[in-house]
Design a protein around this nucleic acid. Sequence first.
DNA 1: AGACAAACCTGTCTGC
DNA 2: TGCAGACAGGTTTGTC
Length: 279
Amino acid sequence: MPELPEVETVRRTLAPVLGARVSSVWWSGKNLRLGKPLALPALRKASKGATFEGFRRLGKYLILDLQDRPKSILVHLGMSGRFRHFPPDVSQPAHTHVEWGLEDGRTLRFTDPRRFGNVELVTRGRERDHASLAKLGPDPIDGVVDVAEFQQACSRTKRPIKVALLDQSLVAGVGNIYASEALWQAHIHPKTPACKLSRPRCDRLVQAVRQVLERALMHGGTSLKDFVSADGHAGEHSHYLWVYDREDEACPNSACSGTIRRFVQQQRATFYCPRCQKY
DNA sequence: AGACAAACCTGTCTGC
DNA sequence: TGCAGACAGGTTTGTC
């Protein structure tokens, strides 16, 4: 579900709990990602009595820093995860798995029906020691994606560019929706082997990735079903998607009379225009 | 290296 | 109305 724009939207809308102090930590007892239990005692030790000092994002991962504490909280929303703050006395939504009670009565909750998401601890300042964070490529919104490096990375793999984009090492934060969107904007066929991309096309793709993500962020992210920001608002970007979930519709490129097609790559749906996206 | 499938889960939609 | 089956924004792991 949540790709970079959605996670960044959550990060930004967490601002009202900056400086709030944690008074309690609760866990549903249900396993999260890959059936692993939450290390509740460690999470309690890390966060109880501490105040939230800052919220960061690395790719699709959210990092919650606590003042004067060596451990930070690492959150991934998986497909259906939500991370929200609530005013006092709002009862727990279904599928809440982790809840931080704040001293002022508010709560911070991680809710996830499918439990593909995760909450764990990372050592502050050594986040990149975490295997999942170590392999993340440059961030197209926070950082700069160097086109020469991007092309170099592409040249090392024959995988189709759509598949390569989903691997978080090329660039961080692109998921299934925005991979299709960016390739459409760059006029690149999703099956093009990554190693065949010329420098100008890499240039176009890097730009398209950044623009697609920024545009989605501007709309508060895409809500197909589950996604809401940390203050509970759905994103508006689904109304602005060009190709994702638009099979059989006309290509939105006004200079093209093609029809959007859908096929499956790596068990994921890909949408593209066979007329204006070339190998 | 990469294609492919399965695993972790529940909710929702479709077709019969 | 009910039920079975397909499918969903992500990541990891294993096989061939």
